[in-house]
Amino acid sequence: MIRLYDYVLSASCYKIRLMAALLGVKLKHEAVDFHPGRAHKSVEFARLNPAGTLPVLVDGDLILTESTAMLVYLAQLLGRDWLAPSDPKSAAQVQHWLAFSGRLAASLGMARLHDMLLYEGNIDAWRAQGHAALRELEAALSERRFAGGVWLVGDAPSIADIACFPNVALSQDGGVSLDAYPSVRLWTRAVRALDRFVEMPGIHRLHELHPAPEVV
């Protein structure tokens, strides 16, 4: 069974939990005391991942420590539809958004860690970089909408969408509002409307897609 070293409040860990849920695969979760225990910085954890970051995915002798690589692995293994079309343009666009998701983590993700887990750093700079990234995402998604599209690459959701979704959907935890980004908001709704979508603290499902509890 594929094991995921996991922390419930981590956007990057959620990325993998969401991908696994959408693919319909169960992972074995190994909870890591990221906060306040900082177990991911321990000597023991460094044997698994010298970089001391989460998540870590282990399948047999394969150890992956980058979340975008985990998305590629899970999709190649279990659901190649999620890789987007393999023509040169689409393949390059997927790589673009996988790399771009790193910029989201370095801006919106850090702003959230600052506000939620008291990370020290330049919060104004993180928020400004977050807005700059959201402007790029908004422009790209608006162009996709003009062409009749919904997703970042191709006609179906792909690992590109899943890579970018968590830190965008959690941006308000870091003091960055999505009010000024209508195409981004509609795209986050499209992700949340996917069959088998799972939540994390700060990202709720679309309640309107389910009956009101009292009339069940």
Partner: peptide, 15 residues
């Protein structure tokens, strides 16, 4: 306060 295309049915937004 917004464009119709950005507010589909059964959606709320800030204005």
């Amino acid at each position: 306060t917004g464009l119709s295309q950005d507010l589909p049915k059964a959606v709320a937004m800030a204005g």
